[in-house]
Design a protein around this nucleic acid. Structure first.
Length: 863
RNA sequence: GCGAAAGUGGCGGAAUUGGCAGACGCACCAGACUUAGGAUCUGGCGGGGAAACCCAUGGGGGUUCGAGUCCCCCCUUUCGCACCA
């Protein structure tokens, strides 16, 4: 190659990296082939289902989306290149409140607003070059999708898993609708963190997710590919607690005849020490206890106010314990002793039974409370340690250990706590005043929403036949278009007579439709099954097709869905399995939660004005640069601090790659220089290479190894992109050295150069697809880059010939020496001691020990 | 209060099993090419010191030939849980 061509860059337009030109060219080509990223039907390849969480079409993509999809797209492309049949779809979680709010503000119908946003965001995704199979696109707000929500609802109803009940529900005044428990955070609405959720008594549809409480908990053990953090959050949310229900008899003094107070306890072994019963202020019996006692009622109301206030502050744990004595008594069924009934502000109605037995000697809260009100404290458990220690007369209270034995407990004296819990539960059950029980924090999923933009619940109310499901053949129940959606006066659908008024399919008489719509988390509970068979109009999907693709091999999204979407969709899968629709117990094999994109130390948000938009980045730097930077700036599981200057560095790097390729573009078709397959060992044996060529070859194989390893393991794309940069830096540095060399024979063999360029393009393909395609074409390659085999590395060629070993004296660096990489230990040992600097430093000292760590260092211990 | 993760140059971040702390990138400095440079190429770049060297991974102890990495105590940040009976 003539030297003039290899010197530093010239200013010609040809070798300028013009991201817009390259990306526009390929963007247009990709638009013409809609099947480019389609999965192969009847493929013999192994399948791989990679999925990013579908977005809500809010209007435009933000950088968090770009990051999420850049990770998924890199993986999808990598798996394609590794010979997998890849499913990589995308869709729109397109029902929901923002569309209604926008409609109210801009006077645009929700449907129009939503579809316009989808069109915009889809165009953005395409421009960013994400490889989605758009033929499988799912849009949850269209009847072709939501009819299956309705179908599933009917199936749930048939199986007794959907039911209607009147109950206290969470109401957000700003959303003007009911919320699920999962949508309440610290007593406030998940969308309005400053808005306290109210309790309203309403008739609502619930899904019986609690039927699967135990399995949802147990199967978390199977999800080894999930972050431990997410599993812990789900475990906490399900909140399993094993204990005993015990009825305290009221002796007919309170409430209807035979009324009892049922308490839940995990420590029934301490029941002989129960010296009071505590009720939540909202407990139903409180009404009877306070009947004709306005003074008492007022005190209870004060307790309720205290609870509310603590919730508001979001710190119920810090509430000062207060209680009132009702003056009534309940019988401890074990001792037949009457104990006073109190109402206390620290007892929660929504946990357990809303009533507890108070055992001050063996529970910290009960101890604190009973001390305050001078209630009796009765010791019934002796810790083992205190038994042995003669000098301690009384163990310090409260004693909460399970490692003790019972005293003052009648026939149960002397038993271990564990044994006593079992025996006493059996005893209670045998005598009809209790039983072993498991309680969960998880409650049934309330899905009714008093809003317009959602799936209509396919139910009718007939005066004669009561609740009647819409017959399957009448699905979908279409969401009407022209609806007044202002926030006043309950469900908007209730104001559409032609929707509400219908005919009962049973009796033919008049009937009213349900006017609430479904929680949008219903939509996302099963959408990923629909992708496998997205255009099916006979069923939500074909079970055989699902069996081929499921479970999802890799799911990628934000950790904010750890308990909402990710627990609902696990429930949905288990229900569908029990229906025989799917075979898998769990929808997602591996879950990856990427970090947030932040800027200037805060999450990007309009109100803070620290927004960087993808459109802006694509226009200024190109899609490749935006994507590559979102992967390079931080490991994907950590938060990413966006810096505008950082993306410029990435753009420079892409320019360096491009210019190197242009300078060294093959003069003849590649086929004549290089065998068709990338088989480096044969094409360029290490032995005959100049040091420069060998350096490139070694770096090339090391880089392939590093990038491949990262995809297989840690997904630290920041370091593997850094590795590719190092390779490019080495290519530049060798190019420069060769250009300055006296003899042309020092050059890099054309074959090795071509091999390096080819591998470089392949390594970049998952991260920067536009540039990779451009260079692939420039190399004269004809086949699809997406299906080109991922490069292989040869460990022998990746190995260093010589290494620089540090030589330490007492752990301090004193010298360095270059040795052959496989030099035997004794040679390294002798060389180290012969080093000039070492000899000087060791003068007057005595060598105690020499530690040689092959390939790492030498440390001489001397005194 | 309990649990988890994190804390490394001016900045984002490397250091996969205890083995040269600071890879890669940004910013900055210098040189080259240039009418010009917000382009490109080359080199420098933790702090102190003239140098030999010394000091440095939130702070303090410890284990070890050797600690960013392991152990103990403490501080800060983020996240999760929080009177769960």
């Amino acid at each position: 190659m003539p030297q003039e061509e290899k010197t530093t860059a010239t200013r010609s337009n040809e070798d300028r990296y013009d991201a817009q030109r390259i990306e526009t060219k390929w963007f247009e080509r990709w638009q013409q082939d809609q099947s480019l990223y389609a999965a192969e039907p009847n493929s013999t390849k192994p399948k791989y289902y990679v999925l990013e969480m579908l977005p809500y079409p809010s209007g435009a993509l933000h950088m968090g989306h770009v990051r999420n999809y850049s990770i998924g797209d890199a993986l999808a492309r990598y798996m394609w290149m590794n010979g997998y049949n890849v499913l990589h779809p995308m869709g729109w979680d397109s029902f929901g409140l923002p569309a209604e709010n926008a409609a109210i503000q801009n006077n645009t119908p929700p449907r129009e607003w939503t579809l316009r946003n989808i069109a915009n965001m889809k165009a953005q995704m395409k421009r960013l070059g994400f490889a989605y199979d758009w033929a499988r696109e799912v849009t949850t707000c269209l009847p072709e999708y939501y009819r299956w929500n309705q179908w599933f609802f009917l199936k749930l109803y048939e199986h007794g898993l959907a039911y209607r009940k009147k109950s206290k529900v969470n109401w957000c005044p700003k959303c003007a609708t009911v919320l699920a428990n999962e949508q309440v955070v610290d007593g406030c609405c998940w969308r309005h963190e400053d808005t306290l959720v109210e309790q309203r008594e309403l008739e609502q549809w619930f899904l019986r997710i609690t039927k699967y409480s135990e399995e949802l908990l147990r199967d978390l053990e199977k999800l080894g590919g999930w972050p431990e953090k997410v599993r812990t959050m789900q475990r906490n949310w399900i909140g399993r607690s094993a204990g005993t229900l015990v009825d305290f008899d009221l002796g007919g003094t309170v409430g209807p005849a035979g009324s009892t107070i049922t308490v839940f306890t995990t420590r029934v072994d301490t029941i002989y020490g129960a010296t009071s019963v505590q009720l939540a202020p909202q407990h139903p019996l409180v009404a009877d206890l306070t009947a004709n006692k306005p003074e008492l009622r007022a005190q209870v109301d004060r307790l309720i106010a205290e609870q509310r206030k603590a919730r508001e502050v979001g710190d119920i744990g810090e509430i000062e314990k207060h209680g009132v004595n009702t003056g009534r008594f309940a019988l401890n069924p074990f001792t037949r002793e009457p104990v006073p009934i109190w109402v206390a502000n620290y007892i929660l109605m929504d946990y357990g039974t809303g009533a507890i037995m108070s055992v001050p000697a063996h529970d910290e809260r009960d101890y604190e409370f009973s001390k305050k009100y001078s209630l009796e404290i009765r010791l019934v458990i002796l810790p083992k340690a205190a038994d042995l220690d003669e000098t301690v007369a009384e163990p310090s209270l409260p004693v909460t250990t399970l490692n003790g034995s019972l005293v003052n407990s009648g026939p149960f004296n002397g038993m271990d706590c564990e044994e006593a819990i079992q025996k006493m539960s059996e005893h209670a059950e045998k005598h009809g005043f209790g039983k072993a029980a498991v309680t969960y924090r998880l409650k049934d999923w309330g899905i009714s929403r008093q809003r317009y933009w959602g799936t209509p619940i396919p139910m009718l109310y007939c005066e004669k036949d009561g609740i009647v499901p819409v017959p399957e053949k009448d699905l979908p129940v279409i969401l009407p278009e022209k609806v007044d959606i202002t926030l006043t006066g309950g469900s908007p659908l209730g104001r559409v007579p032609e929707f509400v008024n219908t005919i009962c399919p049973k009796c033919g008489g008049p009937a009213r439709r349900e006017t609430d719509t479904m929680d949008t988390f219903v939509d996302s509970s099963w959408y990923f099954y629909r992708y496998t068979d997205a255009r099916n109009d006979k069923a939500p999907f074909d079970s055989k097709t699902v069996a081929y693709w499921f479970p999802i091999n890799q799911y990628i999204g934000g950790v904010e869905h750890a308990i909402l979407h990710l627990i609902y969709s696990r429930f949905w899968t288990k229900f569908m399995r029990d229906m025989g629709l799917v075979q898998n117990d769990e929808p997602v094999e591996r879950l990856f939660t990427q970090g947030m994109v932040i800027k200037d130390g805060a999450k990007m948000s309009k109100s803070l004005g620290n927004i960087v938009t993808p459109d802006e980045m694509v226009a200024r730097y190109g899609a490749d640069a935006a994507r590559l930077y979102s992967l390079f700036a931080a490991p994907p599981d950590r938060d990413l601090d966006w810096q505008d200057a950082g993306i410029e560095g990435i753009q420079r790097f892409l320019g360096r790659v491009y210019r190197f390729a242009v300078r060294n573009a093959p003069k003849a078709p590649v086929e004549t220089q290089l065998a068709a397959s990338p088989a480096p060992p044969e094409t360029s044996p290490a032995t005959s290479l100049t040091p420069e060529a060998r350096q490139i070859q070694r770096k090339l194989h090391q880089t392939i190894k590093r990038v491949s390893d990262d995809f297989q393991g840690r997904w630290h794309f920041n370091t593997c992109i850094a590795a590719i940069m190092e390779l490019v830096n080495d290519l530049y540095s060798v190019e420069n050295r060769v250009a300055r060399a006296p003899s042309p024979a020092e050059g890099i063999p054309t074959v090795l150069l071509a091999e390096s360029q080819r591998a470089l393009v392949l390594l970049l393909a998952p991260f920067a697809p536009y540039l990779a395609h451009e260079l692939w074409e420039m190399l004269g390659e004809k086949g699809s880059l997406l299906r080109a085999p991922w490069p292989k590395y040869d460990p022998a060629l990746a190995k260093e010939d010589e290494i620089e070993l540090p030589v330490q004296i007492n752990g301090k660096l004193r010298s360095r020496m270059v040795v052959s990489a496989d030099a035997p230990e004794d040679v390294v040992h002798d060389r180290a001691l012969a080093e000039e600097k070492i000899r000087v430093a060791l003068q007057g000292k005595q060598i105690v020990k020499v530690i040689v760590v092959p390939g790492k260092l030498v440390n001489i211990v001397a005194r």
